[in-house]
């Protein structure tokens, strides 16, 4: 008897999120990564930074290179399985420069992506061709002493993968591979970007995706930043070489905001992505 496979594709990645080295969905939330007793943010709205416990960080000391670890958590309604939490973990190299008294500029280069789910029936693999196709993208940091000592925010940033939109923030995503706005971002001959799935079901998925996110965080020190990510993801599957992977699963933002967070630690100016990936366990023990 041929057993019908059961699939579980939880496929929402965000280059604005970064990764830990764990292989399972972390029960830990942001607070585990924050220093001191004041690191217990329960929601983005309650984010109040260090309060009176942190020494003020001089903005002049912030520029430099950082390794960035982002976790973006979503709840996915997976057919035949039910609701499942899924994390996209991103490893990135960030270059920070000073724009003016109130702003910093970030240039973020994604080094690696990993998706981890509560279920292990399938694994989502981000091919190197896709990772290499990701260009470094900018992000503005607004220094917000009005929110508390060392606090900052980052306004809405939008990234679109696999399609070129005139208005990236508002244009609907293309739904057909034949749409002229769709392009082969990773150069593999398939429309949009290609993600691969392996496990009890396998195949390629060709898709376009839009990530929209804001950040709110604080400078724990001149060498370490942390905060929360508030993001939305839209995704359209353009095709697959496996009919079982023909449409995305319904998903929504994890209701616990502390499950989506980021941490940055300073690295030497000469460090690159491969160094960050190789030293990940040391940077984020």
């Amino acid at each position: 008897m041929r057993l019908t496979t059961v699939w579980l594709v939880v496929l929402f990645f965000s280059a604005t999120t970064s990764c830990s080295g764990s292989n399972s969905v972390a029960d830990a939330s942001m607070e585990e990564y924050l220093d001191g007793a004041d690191g217990g943010a329960d929601s983005a709205a309650d984010w109040s930074g260090c309060g009176d416990h942190c020494a003020k960080v001089d903005a002049e000391s912030l520029p430099g290179s950082y390794a960035m670890f982002q976790v973006n958590s979503r709840i996915v309604n997976v057919p035949v399985v039910g609701q499942s939490r899924s994390e996209t973990r991103t490893k990135a190299l960030v270059t920070v420069t000073r724009r003016d008294q109130e702003h910093l500029d970030m240039l973020i280069r994604v080094c690696d992506l990993e998706q981890v789910s509560e279920t292990t029936l399938v694994e989502v693999v981000f091919p190197e061709a896709f990772l290499k196709s990701l260009e470094a993208y900018p992000r503005l940091i607004e220094l917000r002493p009005d929110l508390g000592i060392n606090n900052f925010t980052s306004p809405l940033a939008v990234e679109v993968y696999g399609a070129r939109l005139e208005n990236p923030q508002t244009d609907p995503l293309p739904t057909e591979a034949s749409d002229s706005r769709v392009y082969d971002q990773d150069g593999d001959g398939k429309p949009g970007i290609t993600i691969r799935v392996t496990g009890i079901v396998d195949g390629e998925i060709w898709l376009v995706q839009r990530n929209s996110s804001t950040l709110s965080g604080l400078f724990e020190s001149a060498d370490r930043w942390s905060g929360l990510i508030d993001s939305e993801v839209e995704q359209v599957y353009l095709g697959s070489d496996n009919p079982a992977l023909s449409k995305p699963n319904e998903s929504w933002k994890d209701p616990d905001p502390s499950h989506s967070y980021f941490i940055m630690v300073r690295v030497g100016e000469d460090k690159d992505c491969s160094w960050i990936v190789d030293n990940w366990g040391t940077l984020f023990p």
Binding site: M1, V6, L8, V80, V81
Partner: peptide
């Protein structure tokens, strides 16, 4: 004929 219902595929 075998009928199988799987409440949780995982």
């Amino acid at each position: 004929v075998s009928g199988i219902f799987m409440p949780d595929a995982s």
